[in-house]
C-alpha cells in the first residue's frame, strides 16, 4: 500500500470522525455566533463613526474580526485535538494501527490534514462577513483573502501542537491542558517578552510569537518569512509527534 493510499484511508476515517462528533458542530457554532456578534458590533460602531475607528471598513471591521476569530480558534483547537491520539491510545486503536503496515507518518499526516480540512471549512464559513459587507461597502478583497489564509495557516500550526500533546498521553484532559499551555505561550510570547523590556528577548519573541506573524498577515503585510514560520512550526510538532509514535512502537 503506497503512502498516498495509506494517508487517504486515514484522512477519510479522521474527517468522518470529526464530522461525526457533535462537539465539533457545537464548538464551531458557538464560536461562529460569537464572531458574528463581534462583527456586527464593529459594523454598527463603524457606521456610527465611533472613536478609534478609521475611515476604512477593512481596517476597522474586517481585520479586527479575523483577529478575534484567531483568538477564538486558540480556545477551540485543544478541545478538538485532545482526542485525536489520546482516544486511540486509550482504546487500543493506536496499538492496532501500529501493527498494520500503515506507516506512522501516514497516520499522522492523515489525522493532521483531516483536522486542517475540517477547520478550513469552518474558517471558509467566516468569509460570509467580508462577503456580506462588500454589498454595503468597499472591502479590500486581497486583505480579506490573505486573512483567511493566515487563519488556516495558524490553525494548522496550533493543530500540530494539539496533536503532539494528544500523542503523548492517554488522558484527553492532560493533552488539552498541555496544548493550551504551549499554544498560549506561542501565541503570547511577545506579550511576556515586552513585559521584561529586554530588547534581545523581545526581538526573539517577535520571531517566535504566532500572534505577531498572524498580525502581519492580517494587516496585508505579507512576507514569505511569515508563511515559512507556520510551515516550520507545524512540521516541528508533527516531527515530534512522529518521534513519539516511533517511541511507542519500540515500547510495544
Amino acid at each position: 500500500m503506497t503512502f498516498l493510499r495509506q494517508w487517504s484511508l486515514i484522512f477519510r476515517r479522521e474527517l468522518m470522525a470529526m464530522f461525526n462528533m457533535p462537539l465539533f458542530y457545537i464548538l464551531c457554532g458557538i464560536f461562529f455566533l460569537l464572531t458574528s456578534l463581534v462583527y456586527l458590533l464593529m459594523l454598527l460602531g463603524f457606521s456610527r463613526g465611533d472613536d478609534g475607528m478609521s475611515v476604512n471598513i477593512t481596517d476597522s471591521v474586517v481585520r479586527p474580526t479575523f483577529h478575534a476569530l484567531h483568538f477564538f480558534l486558540l480556545v477551540q483547537i485543544p478541545l478538538l485535538t485532545m482526542r485525536m491520539f489520546s482516544e486511540d491510545r486509550a482504546d487500543g486503536m493506536l496499538d492496532l494501527l501500529q501493527t498494520t503496515p500503515v506507516s506512522d507518518w501516514a497516520v499522522l499526516a492523515g489525522k493532521f490534514t483531516a483536522a486542517v480540512a475540517a477547520f478550513s471549512i469552518y474558517i471558509a464559513m467566516t468569509a460570509i462577513f467580508p462577503f456580506t459587507t462588500s454589498m454595503l461597502s468597499d472591502v479590500e478583497w486581497p486583505v480579506a483573502v490573505g486573512s483567511l489564509i493566515a487563519l488556516v495557516l495558524s490553525t494548522a500550526a496550533y493543530l500540530s501542537i494539539g496533536i503532539f500533546f494528544s500523542s503523548m498521553t492517554d488522558s484527553q484532559v492532560v493533552a488539552a491542558v498541555l496544548s493550551y499551555v504551549v499554544i498560549f505561550l506561542f501565541a503570547f510570547a511577545q506579550v511576556f517578552a515586552e513585559g521584561t523590556g529586554i530588547i534581545p528577548l523581545m526581538d526573539a519573541a517577535r520571531h517566535l510569537a504566532v500572534s505577531e506573524h498572524v498580525a502581519m498577515l492580517l494587516s496585508g503585510n505579507i512576507a514569505p518569512m511569515n508563511i515559512v514560520y507556520f510551515i516550520v512550526l507545524g512540521f516541528v510538532f508533527l516531527f515530534l509527534t512522529a518521534r513519539t509514535l516511533e517511541m511507542r512502537r519500540w515500547r510495544s
Binding site: 464551531c28 464559513m125 460570509i128
Partner: peptide
C-alpha cells in the same frame, strides 16, 4: 449570521 450559526450547529448535531 444567526441562521448560519444555528444551521451549522443544530444541523450538524442532528446529522451526527
Amino acid at each position: 449570521y444567526l441562521g448560519l450559526g444555528l444551521l451549522f450547529t443544530l444541523g450538524g448535531t442532528a446529522w451526527t
